[in-house]
Design a protein around this nucleic acid. Structure first.
Length: 222
DNA sequence: CGGCTGATTGCCT
DNA sequence: GGCAATCAGCCGA
């Protein structure tokens, strides 16, 4: 198939994914988020990206990389609430990243949104990230969050009612997705809980596994 | 292109 | 006090 990217967005009516989509085990939700359209109906206009990379975090006891691993705190409280809400956190003293809360209340599972391909509202996205090449506009969790104009105000926002929402519609086939280790985590780095769209140039350049250099090219490449 | 480093603040132990 | 689910810039090959 050498057909160019099919029209990823049109003005036809689209519905937000129902809450039942999010009320499932985190790995299933992560898998099914690939290829979906993430929308922000901002005051400056609508911005849309197609998700190409996400990571699953299971704070329900076993995943040391999850912010919820050590229990509920003011910061991670949203993850312990109902599915279908946004968990937005601040890190490294300067960046925000966004997650989608999954599973039943009390089970702190969430999917970190790591990268997307801009498909609509490019002007507003560029205005927020002036120094970026088109390929880097939403390539990386903090870049994606900034590109869409998401901030602390969106922490706890309900994805089924907007203004930030995920659109119902085409996902991708199993053959198009790839599982790797998660980026930037030292503990629990062995879990292949990062999902990405194969061959997408919009996948982040982050290296999976412990942030260490390889002695002699033993690393798997994407 | 790949690798390394400084920036900068809130959160948890 | 230490570190973090990162990024942009700079350097060398």
């Amino acid at each position: 198939m050498t057909a160019p990217t099919p029209s990823p967005w049109s003005d036809e009516e689209r519905e937000p994914l129902p809450r039942s989509f999010y009320e499932r085990p985190v790995l299933e939700v992560a898998r099914d988020l690939i290829g979906r359209l993430l929308v922000h109906d901002a005051p400056e206009g609508r911005a849309v990206v197609r998700l190409v990379e996400v990571e699953a975090y299971d704070g329900h006891g076993k995943d040391p990389a999850s912010h919820a691993f050590r229990g509920k705190t003011p910061r991670n409280a949203v993850m312990f609430g109902p599915a279908g809400h946004l968990y937005v956190y601040f890190t490294y003293g300067m960046h925000h990243c966004m997650n989608v809360v999954c599973a039943a209340p009390g089970i702190a599972q969430a999917v970190l949104l790591r990268a997307g391909e801009p498909v609509a509202g490019i002007e507003s996205i560029r205005a927020r990230r002036p120094a970026s090449r088109e390929r880097d506009l939403a390539r990386g969790p903090a870049r994606l969050t900034e590109a869409l104009g998401i901030g602390p105000w969106a922490n706890g926002a309900d994805l089924t009612t907007g203004p930030v929402w995920l659109a119902e519609g085409a996902g991708v086939a199993d053959a198009e997705v790839e599982w790797t280790g998660r980026v930037g985590v030292s503990n629990g780095a062995d879990r292949p809980w990062r999902v990405l769209l194969r061959s997408s140039p919009y996948v982040s350049p982050g290296r999976p596994g412990p942030a260490r250099r390889s002695p002699r090219g033993g690393q798997v490449r994407g």
